[in-house]
Design a protein around this nucleic acid. Structure first.
Length: 495
DNA sequence: TCTGGGGTCCTGGCTCTA
DNA sequence: TCTGTAGAGCCAGGACCC
């Protein structure tokens, strides 16, 4: 606990949705929802305009569409978010060597360690300068919380949202926390919140009053004791710059439940290979293989097997996952499958010949599968037809070209744009750039040879371009071109 | 049309070993 | 050799976070 508010928490405002609005001038000021568009998709982020309709993260996409029928629903573009995140983290790195990223859009910074602040006024000045720099470099807004501990800094940034800065003076924590709901504290989710409510505790002050023994009795030793300390405003957790990964996993939810045991086994093989590719990408091997199965009724099972030594051999992981699958009853249907590896090490005990063979195999498979995190076009097709469809490794996908809403494209004649919607053999594209005025929409055949998938454009105009600067920021302050509105083609989905 | 994906941490039961 | 015990490791599940 510090005597000066030199722990900074940065939280980008509605990050994915704000990035989409910055990239797509026609969406500024309009409700935007980013998430899975398939029948079982959920909302990753909603713009503040969409939140006014009651849409929020983790809500089923179908429900979000009902609440905000006019919202633009887009697939996530992680490559764009990652590049913006790198710009933001680079700005944070200039403030201190101690930067702890929590996700693409959130991080703690120890300002004292970097000499960027030593008291409240200098911390506030640093926070405001950071917010201005983020806006200048990325065109997006972030909210900053400043306090003497991580927990309070995070609560402060939440209070600062959107586009603000809140500083909590050390010594005032208990006064601030007392009336807040127990759910404010980190580690209190729906289950613990309900547990505490049944015991008559709804505010942080109630927890402090109950005492440590009572919380330990209710929640167990580790959780109860740490919650009691937090309720008193005590949080000594340091900002940690480097954290070692403890596990690597991949999982897939299927648009329709899988019943065919052979198909289930094939999917497990596929996931095992993807998992190993990730594992190797992170420079690790692992000793414990974990299989995750979510059944038709949403009940979730995990089975694990620990090997004699760490491996990064896809065949070994595939076989272990297959063995684990044998012990699971999948009659009734499988909704989700996952394969993970824990007990990570940075070496392997496999022999070199097996490794070389596995590498060749992994490379061949990699050529047939798109970048992880970004849905493939085939997956886009799956989500629109309701039928799961994934190309098998080593075989080209015979399906016709399909386009996902929000995807970047380039047309030979009209230049860069993004997919506004597709269906019945047509794709509607809006041609605009982050620094242009809202653009026009045009409709093409899905197999138009002049249309191709493209990389995301940067959100801020690269140096050297002569067009006027973009109107960005604040979660979308750009003006909509009336002509563009008139030409907007609604998101067409087959049905 | 309910409920994603990738993680971390904790707890409790079980087994093995010293 | 038998018994009790403590600790470590494994395993499964739950809760939480972004």
């Amino acid at each position: 606990m510090r005597t000066a508010p030199t722990i900074l928490h940065l939280d980008m405002d509605a990050f994915f949705a704000a990035a989409e609005q910055a990239a797509k001038p026609s969406l500024r000021g309009k409700p935007v929802i980013v998430g899975g568009l398939g029948p079982r998709g959920v909302v990753a982020t909603a713009s503040y305009e969409a939140r006014r309709f009651g849409v929020h993260s983790a809500m089923p996409m179908a429900q979000a569409r009902r609440l905000a029928p006019n919202a633009a629903c887009l697939v996530p573009r992680f490559s764009l978010y990652r590049s913006v995140s790198e710009q933001v983290m680079e700005l944070l790195g200039r403030l201190s060597p101690l930067v702890e990223p929590l996700s693409l859009d959130e991080a703690f910074v120890d300002l004292e360690a970097g000499g960027a602040a030593h008291d409240a006024p200098s911390a506030r000045a640093t926070g405001e300068r950071l917010r201005a720099d983020i806006r200048a470099v990325t065109g997006l807004t972030g909210s900053v919380g400043l306090a003497g501990s991580k927990m309070i800094a995070k609560i402060a940034s939440e209070q600062a949202k959107p586009d603000g800065l809140v500083l909590i003076d050390p010594g005032t924590e208990r006064h601030l926390l007392g009336p807040l709901p127990v759910r404010t504290l980190p580690g209190v989710g729906p289950a613990t919140g309900e547990h505490l409510r049944r015991a008559g505790m709804t505010t942080v002050a109630d927890l402090a009053e109950a005492g440590e023994d009572e919380l330990v009795r209710l929640l167990g030793r580790a959780h109860g004791a740490s919650l009691f300390r937090m309720a008193l405003g005590h949080d000594d957790r340091p900002v940690v710059a480097e954290r070692d990964a403890k596990s690597v996993s991949v999982e897939d939810t299927f648009d329709v439940d899988l019943h065919d045991r052979v198909r289930v086994r094939l999917e497990v093989d596929r996931l095992a290979e993807r998992c190993v590719r990730r594992l190797r990408g992170s420079g690790h091997s692992g000793r414990t293989i974990v299989l995750k199965v979510r059944r038709y009724d949403f009940s979730t099972l995990t089975r694990s097997e620990t090997l004699r030594g760490p491996t990064d051999d896809p065949a070994v992981v595939r076989e272990a996952a297959g063995r684990l699958l044998e012990s699971v009853d999948t009659t009734g249907g499988v909704r989700l499958l996952g394969v993970g590896v824990t007990g990570l090490a940075d070496y392997t005990q496999e022999d070199l010949f097996a490794q070389a063979a596995a590498e060749a195999e992994a490379e061949a498979a990699a050529e047939t599968e798109s970048e992880e995190g970004a849905p493939t076009m085939a997956e886009g097709a799956a989500s629109e037809t309701g039928e799961p469809h994934r190309p098998e490794p080593g075989r080209p996908d015979p399906a016709e070209r399909r386009w996902a809403a929000g995807q970047d494209v380039r047309h030979a004649m009209y230049g860069p744009g993004w997919v506004q919607g597709s269906g019945v053999g047509r794709v509607t594209v809006r041609f605009e750039e982050p620094w242009s005025a809202p653009g026009r929409v045009r409709t093409f055949r899905v197999d138009d040879e002049d249309l191709e998938a493209a990389e995301p454009l940067p959100l801020v105009r690269p140096a050297g371009r002569t067009e006027p600067p973009p109107a960005m920021g604040g979660g979308g302050s750009g003006q909509m071109d009336p002509a563009a509105i008139a030409e907007t083609v609604p998101d067409r989905r087959p049905g």
